[in-house]
C-alpha cells in the first residue's frame, strides 16, 4: 500500500491505496467523488478529466501516487455553496449537455482554457476540447456555452 495525500477541491485528503490505483479510482471509490467518469479506459474520451496542479489530465491514465502532494480539482469542487462557475450556469441555460456523462470533463477542460485564455476563438475552444468526446450533442451547444461563459467572465454580459 502507498499513502497518497492530495489536496482535493481545496481540502487535504489522504488514503492508503495499492500503487496500481489510478487517480480516477482513488477519487471515485476512496473519496466518493464520482463526477469524473470512466468512459473508454484508454485516455481517448476525456470523461475522466480532472485538473492536477491546474492542468487537465485523464485521471484514468494517471496513478494516484503520481498526483501525491498536488492540488486536484474535480467537478465537485468547481461550484461553491454560494455560486456556480459561469460554465455551469451557461451549460445549464443552453442545455449544452444531454445525457451529461461527458459534462464534468468538458466543463473542466473548458475551465482550464478560460483560465489561460479568457477570450478564445471558436477554433481555440475546439482545440481545447479535442480530448473530450460527446455523443449526444454534436458539440454546438457546448461551444456556445463556453463562448457565453467567457463573455460572463470578461464582464461583457451580466451573470443572468
Amino acid at each position: 500500500m502507498t499513502d497518497v495525500t492530495l489536496t482535493v477541491n481545496g481540502k487535504e485528503r489522504s488514503a492508503s491505496v495499492p500503487p496500481e490505483t489510478t487517480l480516477l479510482e482513488m477519487l471515485r471509490s476512496k473519496l466518493n467523488l464520482t463526477g469524473a467518469k470512466l468512459g473508454c479506459d484508454v485516455g481517448d474520451c476525456g470523461a475522466c478529466t480532472v485538473l492536477v496542479a491546474g492542468k487537465s489530465v485523464n485521471a484514468c491514465l494517471m496513478l494516484a501516487v503520481q498526483a501525491n502532494g498536488r492540488d486536484v480539482l474535480t467537478i465537485e469542487g468547481l461550484a461553491t455553496a454560494e455560486a456556480f462557475h459561469p460554465l455551469q450556469k451557461t451549460f445549464e441555460e443552453l442545455a449544452s449537455l444531454q445525457c451529461g456523462f461527458c459534462g464534468p470533463g468538458i466543463i473542466l477542460s473548458a475551465k482550464t482554457l478560460l483560465d489561460e485564455n479568457p477570450d478564445p476563438t471558436v477554433q481555440e475552444i475546439k482545440d481545447a476540447l479535442a480530448g473530450n468526446l460527446c455523443r449526444c450533442t454534436g458539440y454546438t451547444k457546448i461551444l456556445e456555452g463556453v463562448v457565453d461563459a467567457a463573455r460572463i467572465m470578461n464582464g461583457k454580459q451580466d451573470a443572468a
Binding site: G35, Q88, L97
Partner: peptide, 23 residues
C-alpha cells in the same frame, strides 16, 4: 420559450448518479 433540462444543473455539477457511480 426556453425549456431548461430538468437534469441539466446536476449534470454540470457532477452530481448526476449513473449506475457506475452507485455502490
Amino acid at each position: 420559450q426556453r425549456a431548461p433540462r430538468p437534469d441539466g444543473r446536476l449534470h454540470g455539477l457532477g452530481q448526476t448518479k449513473y449506475i457506475d457511480d452507485m455502490t
